[in-house]
Each structure stands twice: as C-alpha cells, then as structure tokens.
C-alpha cells in the first residue's frame, strides 16, 4: 500500500508526485547559473494549505514552472506564525533550488514581535519580487450604527471601552491595522483574537457577536455585497473598483499609508545574482498572465510584480518600518 499512493497520485498529476514533500533534499549539483534550473525547485510556503499564501503559491505553480522550465514543488511548512518555514528556507542552500514565499506577517511583522527569532529577513533573504497584493477592508456587523470609518471613530469615542474588535490572531496584520487606528485616534476597544484564519472571526462579526474588524477583501467582499457585513473603509490608496461606494482610510484622513497583506518570493542570502534575475523575469511573466490576473482579481487579490528585485527590497524595508513603528508605539508583544 505504501507505493500505491504515489502511483495513484502520479497517475493523475503527472510529474507532480514529488509534491508529497518527502523526497526533496535540496541536493545541488555543480553551481552554474547558466544552466539553472536543471532540477525541480521547492517553494517553501510557511503556512498550512487553505490559507492566502498557499492559494497564491498553488495558483502560480504551473505557470511559473512553465516559464522556468522546471517543476515548482510547493512545500507547506507551517508553525510558529510562519517562522518555522521561514527559518527552514533561510537555512537552505543558496543555489536557487529553494525559494521562499514570504508575506507581510513573516517578513515585515514577526521580526519585531518575536525577539528570539534567529532569522533577520532583510539580511538572510534576497527579495526577488512581490506576487500578490491583498488589500484590507474594515468591516462591521450589519446593524452597526456607523456608515464609514470616520463615523465609527466618533462612535467609539462616544462609547469608550464598549466596542469589541476581532482579528485573525495576536500578531496578524489585521490586528495591527486596528491597533494603528486605535493609537492614532486615541480609541479604547477590546481586542478579541481568533485562530484558524479570518473565517471564524468574520463569521462572528457577521453573526453580530463582535462589532468590527479589519479583514482581507477576499474574505469579506461577497458578504458585503450581500448586505451581511457593512464595509466601513478600504486600506487601499484609491477606492476598490468592485466596491466604489466604500471610502478609503486615507481619504477619510485616518492614515497616510495604504496597507496590504502581500505575498512575495525571496531566496536565501547568497543566491547568485544571475539566478535571482532569472527567477525575477519568470515571476514577472507569470504575474502578467491574463488568466492568473483574472482569477486572482475575482478572489480579491491583485496580481503584481516588482520592477526589479531592488524595488521589492525597498518595498519590504518601508513596510517593515511601518509595522515596527506601530508595534513599538502600541506596545504589542507576542513572545
């Protein structure tokens, strides 16, 4: 029976049988950027299947494999808010055969939340390109008295300590977005953390058990359209095309920066520059693919790529600084 599973899987998914994640050891042949890649490449996803990072990885897996000429194998290595997968990728041989799908949480937030984290993303990784940009929405229970974020702020000021806000976890970007608002406006609310993704938290807002939360557009948009959730603001620079009536946090004067749950591909520090450039070019091609763009868009995710690896580095630096400031000011700890 042991050999049967790879056989059955292999039957269906062709060369993908490797995907069981058991076999790849990253053993590298003679390093030569010119014939890279000549073996399958593993893409480490630091979260379990079913989440936003896994979705992004699986969506681009086929096209990216095509453009690189080698099979991309997605390896889910979850645990410790993504830190376990990030450490595994950082310690891998820098030969281009291990890539890391980082996100706002592991790369920009965790280093400031976990003092014992041995990985320093800006030092231990070379950013290659951003791939997905997932803006957020501030949602409230359907019968909440405020119509937009500005009214919401007034309401909380008039009712200090009475409003509860949910989040998908203590160190999540969605919590920090609310903490930033709370700090900037001097609000007093109670934080109700959830685990297991944004689904359970959003369900409790929908059911009226919790008042408000920040959440990715993907999670909320359909229920906003169906009137089961109220959208108070978007975290984007300009209004979201599919929700034109929802104002942004920026235009309501509540923040001066957009914020996003993003995913991007990074490589362990020391990976040769020609390889970085090759992967970068392949990612740019992949993210331009109309089918991928369209499918991501319908999931509330914007397919993007960085003009250059350097530009992605600058993006991460600014993003990391932003969250570091909020974590410090609001006095948030997780370890």
């Amino acid at each position: 029976m042991i050999t049967r599973r790879p056989f059955v899987l292999g039957l269906i998914c062709g060369g993908l049988a490797l995907g069981s994640g058991l076999t790849l050891s990253g053993a590298a042949t003679a390093q030569d950027a010119s014939n890279y890649p000549n073996q399958p490449i593993q893409l480490v996803v630091p979260f379990a299947p079913g989440g936003a990072s896994d979705f992004a990885a699986r969506l681009m897996q086929n096209k990216l494999s095509e453009h690189l000429g080698q099979q991309i194998v997605v390896v889910n290595r979850d645990g410790a808010a993504g830190n376990i997968g990030m450490e595994m990728a950082a310690r891998a041989k820098p030969d281009g055969y291990t890539l890391y799908l980082g996100n706002v949480g592991t790369v920009s937030i965790n280093p400031h939340l976990f003092p014992n984290l041995t990985v320093k993303p800006l030092k231990d990784f070379i950013p290659i390109s951003i791939v997905a940009d997932t803006p957020g929405l501030m949602i409230a229970r359907p019968d909440f008295p405020a119509k937009n974020a500005k009214e919401f702020v007034e309401y909380v000021k008039a009712n200090p300590g009475k409003i509860n806000f949910a989040s998908p976890g203590t160190g999540s970007v969605n919590r920090l977005e609310m903490e930033a608002l709370q700090y900037a406006q001097g609000l007093k609310m109670t934080h109700i953390p959830y685990k297991g993704g944004a689904g359970p938290a959003a369900a409790d807002v929908m059911g009226g058990h919790v008042d408000v939360m920040f959440v990715t557009i993907a999670t909320a948009i359909n229920n906003v359209k169906a009137g089961r959730l109220k959208a108070l603001a978007a975290t984007t620079k300009e209004r979201v095309a599919s929700l034109p009536e929802v104002p942004t946090m920026m235009e309501q004067g509540l923040t001066n920066r957009p914020s996003s749950s993003w995913q991007g591909v990074l490589a362990p520090a020391g990976t040769p520059k020609p390889i970085i450039d090759k992967v970068h070019a392949a990612i740019v091609e992949t993210m331009r693919d109309p089918t991928i763009r369209e499918r991501m868009a319908s999931a509330g995710v914007i397919a993007v790529s960085s003009a250059s690896p350097e530009e992605f580095m600058e993006y991460i630096k600014a993003d990391s600084q932003q969250w570091s400031d909020i974590i410090e000011k609001a006095g948030i700890k997780a370890d």
């Binding site: 896994d54 969506l59 359909n222 359209k225 319908s298 999931a299 509330g300």
Partner: peptide, 15 residues
C-alpha cells in the same frame, strides 16, 4: 474548497 473555487475564478459566498 474555497481556494479551489477561487482558482476557478468563482467567489464562494451568498451569490
């Protein structure tokens, strides 16, 4: 399953 729907360009939800 929701991921599978989204990969198809379908959005799960009330609609």
């Amino acid at each position: 399953m929701i991921g599978a729907l989204m990969m198809q360009g379908l959005s799960p939800g009330p609609q």
